[in-house]
């Protein structure tokens, strides 16, 4: 399945990543090689196979009491924020 620079650009946008034109072309080339390699999965017959997304043996979803417990204090939870004021994360203006 051939992939174009335009398609790679579209994926970059979805992933919120940007590349220079040169990087984009290099990436497209590497991407193509990887896609050619993974294409070998097409030859495996899987019509009646259920996909595994989790290897955990028990299929039951673990549940717990919905009980309240102390959590991290706001100051500690926000200590790593690049920009914070009055206990809130500050970002560039989003509403005009």
């Amino acid at each position: 399945m051939p992939i174009t620079v335009e398609e790679v650009l579209k994926i970059a946008n979805l992933a919120n990543l940007s590349f220079s034109q040169e990087q984009l072309e290099h990436f497209t080339h590497q991407f193509q090689e990887i896609l050619n390699y993974v294409a070998q999965l097409e030859e495996v017959p899987t019509e009646h196979v259920t996909a595994t997304f989790h290897t955990i043996l028990s299929r039951e979803t673990p549940v717990r009491q919905d009980a309240t417990a102390p959590s991290l204090p706001v100051e500690r939870a926000m200590a790593n924020a690049p920009d914070a004021v009055e206990g809130q994360f500050r970002v560039p203006r989003v509403i005009e």
């Binding site: 999965l41 899987t46 196979v49 595994t52």
Partner: peptide, 9 residues
């Protein structure tokens, strides 16, 4: 999805 199925195998 295909990879998930091969994972089962």
């Amino acid at each position: 999805l295909k990879a998930g199925k091969v994972r089962t195998l």
